[in-house]
Write a protein that binds this DNA or RNA. Structure first.
Lengths: 204, 204
DNA sequence: TGTACATCAGTGAACGCGCGTTCACTGATGTAC
DNA sequence: TGTACATCAGTGAACGCGCGTTCACTGATGTAC
């Protein structure tokens, strides 16, 4: 093919629209974000939008899906990879604070988008199921890591690994929200510092 | 005055509109909640709304204000009262799980309204300041309780009282969100159970 | 490689519904005698 | 307590803007020869 491409591919268009939607929704919220805003941010006309998505809801659903499957899952997979890489649990905990993990963590990176998408999903029974599954799987995987650490150090987690996993997950979520409201109130290392303290208490 | 009142007082109207707004916003979200929805839920016409509030934003601001000043503050004051009532920290922690505290806790009682109002406040510089102040004050008061417990038992909190307060507050916030997504994943006593476990670890 | 044609991704004007807001009104409440 | 009048809380029809969605179109891309 000799002609030079002057138009983005269909995939590029779709991805630019999704990225623009994430950006606009983060700033304005799901309901207040307009198709016009999104198209302008992506550099397309309204028609391009409706050529790629059937309606406004569909792009939000696509974002939610992407969010649940990419951001959240990859953040946990990365944590599991870190866990496998280090023999010493303390080193593993310190490594979790890496910028890479932060970037992958959806709530850490763009917390308002996360809240918006969560609220959207909670208001729709079908999506709610997705959220529930995702949370249960995340809990099971976190619990598993804690159990492996306990086994390796031959200790028993006070209160049980399930509650410990809930504590860490809820702390992570809550800390992101507190940091969102008042960034100065949290050190960058606050998450790993606290988890490390908990780890030492649990395994001593 | 002999005539019987057939119309609510101005205060009643205002309160009914505020309660209706809280209800509609909890269900539909700030941006998707319409004046018509709110008026219908309150049993008034649109005119009544504009006789009591200058615009839609104003009722949301009034709700936010009410929320920050009543729900959140009273929840903490109740906790402080409980702390004063019990000499034994363990009994105090168990008492926090009372239905009364749950009802007062804004995030615990209607978490989606809380999230909606938080997002609304975060998008408006003036309100953001209110949120920040409120959070700092809550943190200081929580930290104070922890310090008093540590003094009373003559122990040192591992990681410091400030981080411990952050942990408990963030855990509370996060746990409410997790419970919102998947109520079955949390026992009703999960908060006090976990705080009790932490307390024992910290003070042993 | 070049040409002719078909397809279809993206354009942007137009449509119409829904929602925030206004306003002329009505009748309940407050006040003075 | 009863009456006359002023005030103003609440009514609901009307307005018009903004936004989601549609559609006739254009010109870039893909294909066949």
């Amino acid at each position: 093919m000799s002609r030079v491409r002057t138009r983005p591919t269909r995939d590029e268009t779709r991805h630019r629209l999704l990225a623009a939607a994430a950006d606009v929704i983060e700033r304005r919220g799901v309901a207040a974000a307009t198709i016009e805003d999104i198209c302008e941010a992506a550099g397309f006309s309204r028609g391009a939008f409706y050529s790629n998505f059937r309606a406004k809801d569909e792009i939000v659903l696509a974002l939610l899906d992407q969010h649940l499957n990419e951001s959240l899952s990859e953040s946990l997979s990365e944590t599991e990879r870190l866990f496998d890489r280090y023999d010493d649990p303390e080193q593993f905990i310190l490594a979790m604070e890496s910028p890479e993990r932060q970037r992958n963590s959806a709530l850490g990176f763009n917390p308002m988008l996360y809240m918006e998408l969560t609220l959207f999903a909670l208001r729709n029974p079908a999506n709610r199921t997705l959220l529930v599954e995702r949370q249960r799987s995340a809990h099971a995987r976190t619990k598993r890591i804690i159990e492996l650490i306990a086994e390796r150090l031959d200790v028993e987690i006070p209160g049980g690994a399930a509650d410990a996993a809930t504590l860490i997950m809820a702390f992570d979520t809550g800390l992101s929200m507190h940091a969102l409201i008042d960034p100065e109130s949290c050190r960058p290392t606050q998450f790993s510092d606290t988890v490390l303290t908990l780890h030492r208490l649990w395994t001593s």
